[in-house]
Nucleic acid binder design. Structure first.
Length: 820
RNA sequence: GGGCGAGUGGCGGAAUGGUAUACGCGCGGGACUCAAAAUCCCGUGUCCGCAAGGGCAUGAGGGUUCGAGUCCCUCCUCGCCCACCA
C-alpha cells in the first residue's frame, strides 16, 4: 500500500520537537519582523478530553504560528488550562474524588492529546488557573481592585441558581436559566462581591470600535453594555394619607419624589400614570391603608416569580394601584402611582412613566385597567393616521396636545422638553446602561478564595499581599449547602485580623472562574515569575495579543471581562495598552455527522484520539481545515478524511520521483508551485485554510502528471504543506536528505514572472452569453483578441446579420461583443 | 419585538461585478488483478440532442449593468444573539 505510516512518524517527530523545544519563543526576530502574540482560548480541562472543535482552533493557529516563524517572526504561542470550575466539583460531590485530582488527570490527558496533534505550543509557559502560583496573582488583582474601589461588597437583588447552589453574574443567566445547569434562576437579595465594570461602560463601548473583531461580536458587546440616553424626570407630591408596613417610616405630604427614566421625554404630556417596580423602596411609603393588602399580596407573588416567569408572561401586564397620586412635572396634573412587575427594579430608576398612547407595554397595561390614553405624537406628514383603538403608536412623529411644544418633531421635542424639565428643576439628562456590575463571588469550593477577612472589631479587611496566596484547603466536605464548603473548614476559617490581629474569619466565597481567565494572557509572557504577575518589559514585548481565536460563546462574558481587566490595569499603571486582543476570529461549531450539535446524549461525538489513531494527526488537522471556512458551523463527515489522507499519501509518494539537483528543469512544475506559494501565503494570512488546501491539492495533481519533479519545486511545496501537516512535512524533508528541521527553513517566496502563463483562456461572450473560449498570449491587445474571437466559428454564427454596438474587453479574462 | 448572518450540484463547499459549480466526498465507467482492496485514468448541475450545440439554473420576484451568486428594493425560509431596558 503506497502510504506513509502515521503511527510511526507522528510520535517520532513529536518526541523530537519536544526535545528541541520547537514551539518556544526565540527571543529574536529577523530584521523588520515584529514579535507576534498568537493566542487560542485556553480550554477547561474536562474529563471527556479534547473536542474536535478545540482541534480546529488550535490547528488554525498552529498553521499561522508555523508560517510566521518561518517568515522570521518571533512568535509567542502559549497554552494553559482554565482549571477551576464546577464540573470537577460536582464530580467530587458525586464520587468523593477531589477536584484537584480530577483536574490534574484531565490536564494530563489534554496535554497528551495536544501533543499527539503536533501543535507547536510553547510548553515551557504552560499554566493552570488552579495552581496556587497562578491564583496568587488572581487574588492579588482582587486586592488591587479592592484598594482602588473597583471591587466592593453590596447587598443587591442577585441571580441565584438552586442547581449550582450559588449566585451568578448577569452574563451567566441565559433565557432566565443558569448557563451551566439550565436551572431556572431566581432573584435573591444577598450581600455579594462585585467588580465595578460599569465604571468602564463608556470606554468599553468606545474601545470596541478600535479593534479588528467580527462585527457580530462587537454588536453583541455593544448591546450588552446597552447605553441609552434619556431624561430622569421627577414626579413629586401626593394626595391622601399614606401608611407603610409596620415599622416603615411615615412620609408626610409632598415629601416624596419619584424619579423615572425615559428615552421618550417627547411623550411627557402623554403620561397617564406612574409604575414602580414591586421591589421599589418607596412602595411601602406610598401605599394607602385601603390598598395595603392588595399591594403586599402582589409584591409577595412577584417576588416568588423567577425572571423567566416574569418575561414569559410578557403579554400579561398585571399590577396594583398604591392609592397615591403624583404630580406631572410640567402640568401639575395628578397621575396615579401603580406597581407592576413589568418594571424592573434594577434598570434605570426602577420606575417608569406610563404613556399608553406611545408604548406597547403601557398600552396593554392601560387597556387592562382602563387608564386614559392621551395621544401626544402624530405620525409625520404623508404617513397614515394611527388607530389608537387597537395599538400604541411607538414611532417618532410630530408633537400634539403638548402645550407649547406642539408641532415639533420628536427629536426637537426631546431636546426642548428635556431643557424645560431641567430648568424647572424637575429632572436631568442621563445616560443609562444595561450593563450591571460584575458579581464575582461564588458560594462554591473549586475556585480562587477571595482574599478578605472578617474581623469582629475592624469589619472586612483585605489580606496582606505578602500573605498571598490564600490557599484552598483540601479537607472540605463538598456537599453544597448554599454556603461555600470552605465555611466548615476550621483551619481555613479561623484567622487573625490583618489589621488588629484579633480573631477574624476568612471570607469563604471563591471567585467566579471568569476572573481567572480575565488576565491569563498576561501571565503567559512571564509565567514563572514569583515576584510580579509579569515583568513590565515582558508585557511590553508581547502584549497586546495580536490574534486571538476561540468560540463565539464567549462574546459577552470572557471577552468583556478581559477588556475590563485590561482597562483597569491600564489605569492603575500596570499596562501600557487598553484593548487586550487586537484581532479576534471565531471558529464555528463542528457538528456531529447528523448535523446536530455534538453531545454525549446524542451519541454523535467524534473523539480526536480515534481519528489520530486511524488516519493520523496530519490527516485530522488537514481535514478540519478543509471542511469549510473557519468561522462557519460544519457537520463532521468521516469519509471526508479519506480524501485528505489520499492527498497526503500522494504527496508522500511523489518524493520518489524527485530528480537530483542537476536534473533537467520542468518549467510547468515551477510555475504551478509559484502560483501555489502565492495562494497559500495569502490564504493563511486571511485564515482561509480551506482554499489554501484546495490550492495545494491542485498543485499536487499537476505535479503528479510529471514523470520527474524538480527538487526545488517539490521542496517549496513541502514547506507549504508542513504548516498544515507538520509530521509528514518533516518526514519528507528529512527523507530528501535535509538534516535540520523544515520549520527552520525560510518561508518560500514566489517570483511574479513565474505567475504569468504563456497562454490564457479568454472567454468570448456575445451579448453577455458565453459562446466560446480562445487561447491567447496574455500580452495580446484588444484588437487581436477581438479578431480572434470573431473568427471563432460558434461566435461568428451569433454575430451573423447583426451590428456591433460595442466591445468590452477585460484583459486576460473575457471579451464581450454587444450586438443588436 | 429588535439586531446580525446565511440560502449555490446528491453532500462539505469555491468564485476582486467578468468563463457559476474550483477542491474534496459520493456516484458511474474503464485500466491493473484469477478476484477483491488499494491505486491510476475518464465522466458526473438540469433539460433537449447521435453529435456539434442550445435552453434553463446560485431561496422567490423586481431593478441597476455590456455582464449579477456578488450591488439595490420587496418577499420567503433557516441560523445565531438580545429581549417587558421604559
Amino acid at each position: 500500500m503506497p502510504s506513509y505510516n502515521h503511527l510511526e512518524i507522528e510520535p517520532k517527530w513529536q518526541g523530537r520537537w519536544d526535545e528541541t523545544g520547537a514551539g518556544k519563543t526565540t527571543g529574536k526576530s529577523s530584521d523588520g519582523k515584529d514579535p507576534l502574540y498568537l493566542l487560542t482560548m485556553f480550554p477547561y480541562p474536562s474529563g471527556s478530553g479534547l473536542h474536535v472543535g478545540h482541534v480546529e482552533s488550535y490547528t488554525a493557529m498552529d498553521i499561522v504560528a508555523r508560517k510566521k516563524r518561518m517568515e522570521g517572526h518571533d512568535v509567542l504561542f502559549p497554552i494553559g488550562f482554565d482549571a477551576f470550575g464546577l464540573p470537577a466539583e460536582n464530580y467530587a460531590i458525586k464520587t468523593g474524588v477531589h477536584p484537584a485530582e480530577t483536574t490534574d488527570k484531565a490536564i494530563g490527558n489534554f496535554r497528551r492529546q495536544m501533543k499527539s496533534l503536533g501543535l507547536s505550543f510553547d510548553w515551557s509557559r504552560e499554566l493552570s488557573t488552579a495552581d496556587p502560583a497562578y491564583y496568587k496573582w488572581t487574588q492579588w488583582m482582587f486586592l488591587l481592585f479592592y484598594k482602588n474601589d473597583l471591587a466592593y461588597r453590596a447587598k443587591a437583588p442577585v441571580n441565584w441558581c438552586d442547581g449550582c447552589v450559588t449566585v451568578l453574574a448577569n452574563e451567566q443567566v441565559i433565557d432566565g436559566k443558569c448557563d451551566r445547569c439550565s436551572t431556572v434562576v431566581v432573584q435573591k437579595d444577598l450581600e455579594q462581591w462585585f467588580f465595578r465594570i460599569t465604571k468602564y461602560a463608556d470606554r468599553l463601548l468606545a474601545g470596541i470600535e478600535t479593534v479588528d473583531w467580527p462585527e457580530r461580536i462587537k454588536t453583541m458587546q455593544k448591546n450588552w453594555i446597552g447605553r441609552s440616553e434619556g431624561v430622569e424626570v421627577e414626579f413629586r407630591g401626593l394626595k391622601g394619607e399614606m401608611i407603610g408596613e409596620p415599622g416603615a417610616e411615615r412620609v408626610h405630604e409632598a415629601e416624596f419624589s419619584i424619579p423615572v427614566f425615559t428615552t421618550r421625554i417627547d411623550t411627557l404630556f402623554g403620561v397617564s400614570y406612574i409604575v414602580l417596580a414591586p421591589e421599589h423602596p418607596l412602595v411601602d411609603a406610598l401605599t394607602t391603608v385601603e390598598n395595603c393588602e392588595a399591594v403586599v399580596a402582589y409584591r409577595d407573588q412577584a417576588r416568588k416569580k423567577s425572571e423567566l416567569e416574569r418575561t414569559q408572561l410578557e403579554k400579561d401586564k398585571a399590577g396594583v394601584f398604591t392609592g397615591t397620586y403624583a404630580k406631572h412635572p410640567l402640568t401639575g396634573e395628578e397621575v396615579p402611582i401603580w406597581i407592576s412587575d413589568y418594571v424592573l427594579v434594577n434598570y434605570g430608576t426602577g420606575a417608569v412613566m406610563g404613556v399608553p398612547a406611545h408604548d406597547d407595554r403601557d398600552y396593554l397595561f392601560a387597556s387592562k385597567y382602563s387608564l386614559p390614553v392621551h395621544q401626544v405624537i402624530a405620525p409625520p406628514a404623508g404617513m397614515p393616521e394611527h388607530d389608537f383603538a387597537s395599538a400604541a403608536y411607538g414611532d417618532a412623529g410630530i408633537l400634539v396636545n403638548s402645550s407649547t411644544f406642539d408641532g415639533l418633531t420628536s427629536a426637537e421635542g426631546k431636546n426642548m422638553i428635556a431643557t424645560a424639565v431641567e430648568s424647572a428643576g424637575k429632572g436631568k439628562r442621563v445616560t443609562n446602561y444595561h450593563l450591571r456590575d460584575w458579581l464575582v463571588s461564588r458560594q462554591r469550593y473549586w475556585g480562587a478564595p477571595i482574599p478578605m477577612a472578617w474581623c469582629e472589631t475592624c469589619g472586612v479587611q483585605p489580606v496582606e499581599p505578602s500573605a498571598l496566596p490564600v490557599l484552598l484547603p483540601r479537607d472540605v466536605d463538598f456537599k453544597p449547602t448554599g454556603k461555600s464548603p470552605l465555611v466548615d473548614s476550621v483551619t481555613f476559617h479561623d484567622v487573625v485580623c490583618p489589621k488588629c490581629s484579633g480573631p477574624a474569619r476568612r471570607e469563604s466565597d471563591t471567585m467566579d472562574t471568569f476572573v481567572d481567565s480575565s488576565w491569563y494572557y498576561l501571565r503567559y509572557v512571564d509565567s514563572t515569575n514569583a515576584e510580579v504577575f509579569a515583568e513590565p518589559e515582558a508585557l511590553k514585548q508581547w502584549c497586546p495579543v495580536d490574534l486571538y481565536v476561540g468560540g463565539a460563546e464567549h462574546a459577552v462574558m470572557h471577552l468583556l471581562y478581559s477588556r475590563f481587566f485590561a482597562y483597569a490595569l491600564h489605569d492603575l499603571g500596570y499596562l501600557d495598552f487598553e484593548e487586550p486582543f487586537l484581532k479576534l476570529r471565531n471558529q464555528g461549531l463542528i457538528l456531529g455527522p447528523d448535523g446536530e450539535k455534538m453531545s454525549k446524549s446524542r451519541g454523535n461525538v467524534v473523539n480526536p484520539d480515534e481519528v489520530v489513531e486511524q488516519y493520523g494527526a496530519d490527516a485530522l488537522r488537514l481535514y478540519e481545515m478543509f471542511m469549510g471556512p473557519l468561522e462557519d458551523a460544519k457537520p463532521w463527515d468521516t469519509s471526508g478524511i479519506v480524501g485528505v489522507r489520499r492527498f497526503l499519501d500522494k504527496v508522500w509518494m511523489m518524493r520518489e520521483r524527485v530528480e537530483g539537483a542537476e536534473g533537467r528543469r520542468f518549467e510547468g512544475a515551477d510555475r504551478i508551485v509559484h502560483k501555489t506559494i502565492k495562494k497559500v501565503s495569502e490564504d493563511i494570512d486571511a485564515m482561509k485554510f480551506n482554499t489554501a488546501i484546495s490550492a495545494m491539492m491542485i498543485c499536487a495533481n499537476a505535479l503528479q502528471t510529471a514523470e520527474t519533479i524538480p527538487r526545488g519545486a517539490y521542496e517549496s511545496f513541502v514547506k507549504l504543506l508542513a504548516t498544515f501537516a507538520p509530521h509528514l512535512g518533516e518526514e519528507i524533508w528529512h527523507d530528501l536528505g535535509n538534516a535540520s528541521s523544515v520549520f527552520d527553513e525560510a518561508w518560500p517566496t514566489f517570483d511574479e514572472a513565474m505567475l504569468v502563463d504563456d497562454l490564457v483562456a479568454i472567454a468570448v461572450q456575445v451579448n453577455g452569453k458565453l459562446r466560446g473560449t480562445i487561447q491567447m498570449d496574455p500580452s495580446s491587445n484588444e484588437k487581436d483578441v477581438q479578431d480572434r474571437a470573431m473568427a471563432t466559428e460558434n461566435v461568428a454564427k451569433f454575430l451573423e446579420g447583426t451590428e456591433i454596438v460595442k466591445v468590452i474587453y477585460v484583459p486576460g479574462r473575457l471579451i464581450n461583443i454587444v450586438v443588436k
